[in-house]
């Protein structure tokens, strides 16, 4: 009996599919956990630094692997990588029921930037500017931040920090802005929980502002949230598995 259990466990383990997500308290991680209940496979979320790290692990893995990534990070990868590594990714499909938004949060008590409610081309001329936090290196936010701030000619001010450190810095007026990419619930028009929490907790200090990067076709989809318009980013399920049926099955689990 004991042996049978061990065999069952080994079989389950063999059939457990590793999916690279971002941090364990991030949205991709919980997406995979929730998807487990509706799936015939055992899905195991693997903690990583973020979307770019997901791709890195995916292409360097010997066995077929799976990941959830931000659309713009995938584009970034496609543009920079060589054909060999691009070919490794066999399956790419947009998660239709899941979306992410770019949140730009500033400290409204910071007198230097009190009039800024929209970050657009005009801020090229801004001479005194503090750093802008875009998440840790290797995260999806860092690529989004880079893309957006480059188009606004603000990339010299990019600072790579974890979100909690960035929040401290913002509250201390050490930085000008946090750019953070996280889930946006289109159905209920709800923003990401971390953003919601900090906006509630520090409502006298923090506020969302709008970003309008020109000439960036990728960031065209927008959604209205309160006074602001947020930019939406599509999310993709990707895999190096050549088994298309299996990929589709996992995709269906995730796309609830």
């Amino acid at each position: 009996m004991k042996k049978l259990w061990i065999i069952i466990l080994i079989v389950i383990e063999l059939y457990s599919l590793d999916i690279y997500t971002a941090s364990s308290n991030g949205d991709y991680f919980s997406l995979v956990l929730k998807a487990q209940n509706r799936c015939n496979f055992k899905l195991s979320p693997i903690e990583t630094r973020g979307s770019l790290d997901n791709i890195k692990r995916l292409i360097s893995s010997e066995k077929p692997s799976y990941a959830i990534v931000q659309g713009d990070v995938l584009e970034f990868f496609k543009k920079l990588s060589d054909i060999k590594s691009r070919k490794k990714i066999r399956f790419i499909k947009k998660l239709e029921n899941y979306a992410e938004a770019i949140y730009a949060i500033k400290n409204k008590k910071d007198r230097l930037f009190k009039d800024i409610t929209l970050l657009d081309e005009n801020y090229k001329k801004l001479k005194i500017i503090k750093d802008i936090s875009v998440g840790t290196f290797g995260s999806g936010s860092s690529i989004t931040g880079y893309n957006i701030l480059t188009s606004l000619e603000l990339n010299p001010y990019i600072r790579y920090t974890a979100k909690d450190d960035a929040l401290d810095a913002l509250l201390n007026k050490d930085i000008f802005l946090i750019i953070y990419v996280a889930k946006f619930d289109k159905k209920n028009n709800n923003i990401a929980s971390w953003i919601d929490n900090i906006l509630q907790k520090y409502k006298n200090y923090l506020e969302l502002i709008e970003i309008n990067p020109k000439n960036l076709s990728f960031y065209k989809e927008k959604v209205k949230y309160g006074k602001n318009t947020l930019i939406l980013i599509p999310t993709f399920f990707i895999s190096t598995d050549s088994n298309i049926t299996k990929n589709m099955e996992i995709y269906k689990c995730l796309n609830y």
Partner: peptide
């Protein structure tokens, strides 16, 4: 800055 970003990310990948 842009070149360094590309380099660092490729080195990381």
């Amino acid at each position: 800055d842009r070149i360094e970003f590309i380099l660092k990310n490729l080195e990381f990948l």
